[in-house]
Design a protein around this nucleic acid. Structure first.
Length: 100
DNA sequence: GAGCTGACACGGC
DNA sequence: CGCCGTGCCAGCT
């Protein structure tokens, strides 16, 4: 019965807000921590209700960024001292892990 | 009601 | 290593 509920959306928003400045997380991690089946849903939530969130701290599993956001996202990340090479971030040392 | 689209992940090449 | 194709779930036309 996995129809996206308001509670799920709020959970995702809270998780992203909990990511400290200078750190980044992945869509997959957020999805798993929020109890969502697919990481695509996280992207969908951010697209609809993520304007007021630090969405730039959320990247793909391999550290790459979505084409349309790549430019601005990279800019914002660099402003937080996050190393960005091209359209890709080094999440190895900066990856924020959510508590199980 | 059916089909296309998308702020993703993963396995191959 | 990086690019490409396939699978997933929900929403929109």
């Amino acid at each position: 019965m996995p129809a996206l509920e308001d509670a799920d959306v709020e959970r995702v928003r809270a998780l992203i807000r909990s990511v400290p400045s200078g750190h980044v997380t992945t869509y997959g991690d957020v999805a798993r921590a929020a109890g969502l089946g697919n990481a695509r849903m996280v992207g969908w939530i951010l697209r609809t209700d993520g304007a007021d969130l630090p969405w730039h701290r959320v990247v793909r599993a391999d550290g790459s960024l979505a084409p349309h956001l790549a430019t601005e996202q990279a800019l914002r990340l660099q402003a937080e001292n996050v190393t960005v090479s091209g359209h890709r971030v080094l999440l190895r040392p900066l990856r924020h892990v959510f508590p199980a």
